[in-house]
Computed example of a mutant assay.
Amino acid sequence: MSVNFELIIDTPAFEVDMKSGLTTLQGISDATRTIAETLLTEKVPERLTSKSNVRTLLKKNFKGSYGQIFSLEMHDEEAKKKFRKIGGPAFSELMNYFLMESLYLEPDDLSEKAQQQLDSLGDTAEHLTAQLRQSIMINIHDIARKFGHNIQLNFRKNSTEKIEIAKFNEDTSSALEAETDKKPIFIEASIRRLNANTGNGRLQLRDGDNTIPFGFSMIYQYVQLPTKRKFSTNLHHNNGIPEEDWTYLTLEVLPVRIHGDRIIKYIVKGIYE
């Protein structure tokens, strides 16, 4: 059983630096296999080997920038059965989710089917995101960092219909240089999204316009129940009402920054009335 994808490197001609192009392709392959193995086995693979039952296979390339078609191959009956249950569209949604989360970007809204699959992973979802943030993301961005070429990953439903999964460029590569502050600060925030299994979500600062990812400084299962309830209660209260009627939580957080000052995530250490 195979599922087709395409990688497009935005170059002005049908050519690309071979070393960086291969590194980027390796990163895309590793990301696809790591996400797939996690979704199909509910375990994050520590190593990817040629003996795995889930592998990627290079296929034909195409003109118009540098385009390369490849497939995700499943050689195990249980893996095939699990993939059919998830389905191609939901699988592409989850690929988008994990790739965006690994770059601290807001993923697209998940369908009910994809959300159920994400919820079933529990803390494994956080482990997968952490795995992607390491050498995989560095390799994906190699051609963007060294040559400024944009990268696009698509899921191919068929020869003509495609679903965009993710884009990578010099801006998204800046997330690879993120650093967490050592000194906590206090913020007032409204909870806009919350994964009840992992504790990850997005918040909006008082007087802020955009949402920012957040997570907890400890494994979510160890967070005290009263704290969890305050987050979920705030989310439900503020949903569907005018912003002027929102209530806010006062949180002690560690900011995660890029370029010294831009905050791309908050690590929650505590909550205060």
Rank of each mutant, 00 (worst) to 15 (best):
M1R: 07
S2P: 04
N4P: 03
E6R: 13
E15H: 00
V16D: 04
D17E: 09
M18T: 01
T23S: 08
T24H: 00
D30S: 11
T32F: 07
R33G: 05
A36D: 04
E37Y: 05
T38R: 01
T38E: 03
L40G: 04
T41A: 04
V44K: 08
E46M: 10
N53M: 03
N53R: 04
V54D: 02
K59H: 11
K60L: 09
F62N: 01
G64K: 06
Q68L: 15
I69M: 11
E73Q: 13
E73M: 14
M74H: 04
K85Y: 08
I86Y: 01
G88H: 06
F91H: 00
L99M: 14
M100C: 14
E101H: 05
E101P: 01
Y104E: 10
L105E: 14
E106C: 00
E112G: 15
K113W: 13
L118V: 09
L118R: 09
S120P: 00
H127Q: 15
A130W: 08
L132S: 08
Q134R: 15
S135R: 10
N139H: 15
D142L: 04
A144G: 06
R145C: 05
R145K: 13
K146G: 02
G148C: 00
N154D: 13
F155C: 12
F155K: 04
T160E: 06
I163W: 08
F168I: 09
S174T: 13
A178Q: 07
A178H: 09
E179P: 00
D181H: 07
I187H: 01
L194H: 12
T198R: 09
G199M: 03
L203G: 05
Q204I: 05
R206W: 09
R206Y: 12
D207K: 09
T211M: 10
F214W: 11
G215P: 01
F216L: 11
M218D: 14
M218A: 13
I219H: 10
Y220N: 12
Y220E: 10
Q221C: 12
L225I: 13
P226Y: 01
T227Q: 11
K228R: 13
R229P: 05
T233E: 14
H237K: 12
P242W: 07
E243F: 05
W246N: 12
T250Y: 02
E252F: 01
V253S: 02
R257G: 06
D261Q: 09
D261E: 12
I264V: 13
G270W: 02
G270D: 15
